[in-house]
Computed example of a mutant assay.
Amino acid sequence: MESLVLSLFLYFPEDKSEYIPAAISFFFFFLACVATFWLILRISKKEASKAKELEEKLLKQEQSGGNS
């Protein structure tokens, strides 16, 4: 019974050319993952710089308002 269950999930083809479509799709999905990760990092850096500018602006306003 156990070998029947394992044979449903494990398939090693004799003809190794059957791996080519899987390798191609893996390559494209991997590129999509890398591009998405890069895009998230880029947007995150932009948002962090905006937040830092806003923080500095608020601190300057607070200091100038406290001095008056």
Rank of each mutant, 00 (worst) to 15 (best):
A35C: 14
A23E: 02
K52M: 05
L10M: 07
S64H: 01
S49Q: 15
T36I: 12
A51W: 03
K50D: 13
P21D: 06
S3D: 15
L58Y: 14
K50G: 04
Q61T: 02
K46Q: 13
L58T: 04
A32I: 07
A51C: 02
L31H: 04
S49T: 12
I43M: 08
E18H: 15
I40R: 04
E47T: 08
L8D: 06
K60H: 13
L41T: 07
V34S: 04
A35N: 08
L41I: 10
E62G: 01
F29P: 00
I43L: 14
S3K: 14
E62S: 10
E53A: 14
D15T: 00
F37P: 00
I43Y: 11
S64Q: 03
A23R: 04
E47A: 11
A51K: 04
E2F: 06
L10F: 14
P13T: 03
L10I: 15
F37H: 07
E53N: 13
L8S: 06
F37S: 12
K60M: 09
G65P: 00
G65K: 08
A23D: 02
C33V: 02
K60C: 05
E2H: 10
E55F: 09
S25T: 01
S25A: 03
I43V: 15
Q61S: 08
F37A: 14
A51V: 02
A51G: 01
E62H: 12
C33F: 02
I20H: 07
P21V: 07
P13R: 03
L59V: 09
W38T: 13
E62W: 11
I24E: 07
M1S: 13
Y19F: 15
K46V: 12
R42D: 01
Q63W: 10
A23V: 06
S3I: 07
I20R: 09
F12M: 06
K45M: 07
L6F: 09
S64N: 01
